[in-house]
Amino acid sequence: MEARIWPLYRLRITTPRLELRLPDLNLAGELAEVAAAGVHDEARMPFTVPWTDVSPEERGRGTFQHVLGTIANWRPQEWTLSLAVLCLGQVVGRQDLSATDFAVTQEAETGSWLGLAHHGHGLGTEMRAAVLHLAFEGLGARSVTSAAMTDNPASLRVSEKLGYRADGLTVTSVQGTYRTLQRLRLDRADWAAHRTVPVDIHSLEPCRSFFG
C-alpha cells in the first residue's frame, strides 16, 4: 500500500555492504532505537542543531518524527530524502539528501549520522558514496554540498576521501558556544575522479517527478 501511494518506498540504493531506503514505520522504529543508543561522543556536539542533547527516549522519538515529517512536508520544489542505512539487514544510521528548487539549481546537500556502535568501520564513507551516486548518476546533479565542524576530523576525512573541496567557513552558535563550520562542495568531475565504491540504484524511474 505505502509503495503504491508513495513510490519512494520502493527506491533502493545498494553498495557491497549497505542498503539505503526510505523507512516504513517498522524501520523508522528501529532507526529511533539506534539514535536512542547514541550517535556521538557526548563530550562534543557535532551538529549545528543539537538534536541529540536530550534524553535517549526523546532522541529516539525525535528521529521517528523527523522521518515522518520529511514525507509530510515533501514537495518537488523542496524535499529531504531521509534514508535508513542497513548493514547486513541491521539498521545502523541515517543518510539524508535534500534540495530546494533542484530542477533549477541541480544542487543538493547531504547530512547523516551513524550509530555510535557502528563507528570506525568505513560505513560513513560508504553510505555517503551511495547517496552521492543517487545525486549525480541518478538525478543529474551538478554539485552537492555538505558541512562539518572544524573539530570533527572524522566527518572531514569522509568528505576529503569522496572528493569534496573546502568552500569557506561559517561561524555559528551551538548551545551558547562559538563554533566554526567548514563548508564543503563536490562537483561532478571531482565526484567521478574519487569514485571507489560500487553503487546500484533500484526503482528510481517511478520516483523522478518527486524530485522536480
Score class of each variant (00 low, 15 high):
5 I>D: 09
8 L>Y: 07
17 R>P: 07
20 L>D: 07
22 L>G: 01
22 L>K: 00
22 L>I: 04
24 D>N: 14
26 N>P: 00
29 G>Q: 12
29 G>M: 06
31 L>T: 08
32 A>Q: 11
34 V>I: 15
40 H>L: 03
41 D>P: 06
46 P>F: 03
48 T>P: 00
49 V>F: 12
50 P>T: 08
52 T>I: 14
53 D>G: 02
53 D>E: 15
56 P>Y: 08
59 R>K: 14
60 G>D: 09
62 G>Q: 14
63 T>M: 13
69 G>Y: 04
71 I>S: 01
75 R>Q: 14
76 P>Y: 10
76 P>F: 08
77 Q>S: 15
83 L>S: 03
84 A>D: 06
88 L>Y: 11
105 T>V: 10
105 T>D: 04
105 T>W: 07
110 T>M: 09
110 T>R: 02
111 G>V: 09
118 H>C: 09
119 H>R: 04
120 G>D: 05
125 T>N: 05
126 E>K: 07
127 M>Q: 11
128 R>Y: 04
130 A>P: 06
131 V>H: 03
145 T>E: 02
146 S>Q: 07
146 S>M: 05
151 D>S: 03
154 A>N: 01
157 R>G: 15
157 R>V: 04
157 R>Q: 13
159 S>G: 11
159 S>N: 14
160 E>S: 10
162 L>A: 11
162 L>E: 03
163 G>A: 08
170 T>E: 12
173 S>Q: 15
179 R>D: 05
181 L>I: 13
184 L>V: 03
191 W>Q: 10
192 A>C: 09
192 A>Y: 04
193 A>Y: 01
194 H>K: 11
198 P>E: 05
198 P>C: 04
201 I>H: 05
202 H>T: 10
203 S>F: 12
210 F>N: 01
